[in-house]
Computed example of a mutant assay.
Amino acid sequence: MDRVAPKEAGGYRDRLLAGAVACLQEKGYARTTARDLVTASGTNLASIGYHFGGKDALLNEAIAAVFEQWTARVEHSMFDSRPATPREMLERAMTALVDVFEDLGPQLVLCVEGYPAALREPVLRQKLAEAYARGRAAGTDMIRRAADQLGVELPMAPEVLVSVLIAISDGLMLQWLLDPAATPDARQVVDTLATLSAFIA
């Protein structure tokens, strides 16, 4: 995932978001203070209230932004080169979802730490639910676009397929954080899905 140096980003809003991501990765949701955000972003306390309404709203927005950047990365992986077979398209998607864990280590921790915080913070819960909804909608559009490019008919509702792929990615993310060596890669995931499909058909 691309990183933006907070003090080199565009306006105050972008700098605050980048600084919030950096603070969340370093300190976590509960331990990040408004002064931490100001220091990391090179802004001031008033700018937090002006652009986001408060510290918690800024942190919530930063967590949601990380999810959306990941979705954009998947889309880029799927469509940045020539049309492929359905299996190759799935491998591209799973590569962008699974084979990036090592590169995204701090962001993964940030994402996971957002879940328990969301259970106690209704606004954050809503933000994450909206981020997932946008991710599912984007994924559905990607699948329909891929099917059109490949000239194939989808065997199931794309919304269901996207939800299952997200669930696989999220589950593997948790496994990778605990034991990277024991976590299957994208090709193994696709091989397993293909084998399972043939077995239960």
Rank of each mutant, 00 (worst) to 15 (best):
D14Y: 02
R15E: 02
L16H: 00
L16N: 00
L16S: 00
L17T: 05
A18Y: 01
G19M: 03
G19S: 04
G19K: 00
A20L: 09
V21L: 07
V21M: 08
A22D: 14
A22T: 10
A22G: 08
C23G: 03
Q25L: 10
E26S: 09
G28D: 03
Y29A: 06
Y29Q: 05
R31S: 15
T32H: 12
T32G: 13
T33Y: 13
A34P: 10
D36A: 10
V38Y: 13
V38S: 12
S41F: 00
N44E: 08
L45E: 15
I48D: 03
G49Q: 13
Y50N: 14
H51K: 09
H51P: 05
F52M: 06
G53E: 09
G53V: 10
G53K: 11
K55G: 04
K55Q: 08
K55W: 02
D56L: 06
A57T: 08
L58Q: 04
L58R: 05
N60C: 14
N60R: 15
N60K: 07
E61Y: 05
A62M: 05
I63T: 14
I63G: 03
I63C: 11
A65P: 00
A65T: 05
A65L: 07
F67C: 06
E68P: 01
W70T: 01
T71S: 08
A72V: 04
R73H: 14
S77N: 02
M78E: 10
M78H: 09
M78Y: 08
F79A: 10
D80L: 00
D80S: 11
R82S: 08
A84E: 09
T85F: 01
E88Q: 14
E88A: 12
E88C: 05
M89I: 11
M89C: 10
L90K: 01
L90Y: 06
L90W: 04
L90F: 07
E91K: 13
R92P: 12
R92T: 12
R92V: 12
A93Q: 13
M94V: 09
T95Q: 14
T95I: 11
T95D: 14
A96Y: 09
A96Q: 08
A96H: 09
V98S: 06
V98M: 08
D99M: 12
D99Q: 13
E102I: 01
D103C: 00
L104S: 15
G105Y: 06
P106S: 11
Q107F: 03
L108Y: 07
L108E: 05
L108F: 10
V109N: 07
L110H: 01
L110K: 02
L110Y: 02
L110S: 02
C111D: 03
C111Q: 06
V112E: 15
V112A: 14
Y115A: 12
P116S: 09
A118I: 12
L119S: 07
L119E: 08
R120I: 03
E121V: 06
V123S: 15
V123C: 08
L124S: 01
R125A: 05
K127E: 10
K127S: 10
K127Q: 13
K127I: 00
L128V: 12
L128T: 06
A129K: 11
E130Q: 10
A131F: 06
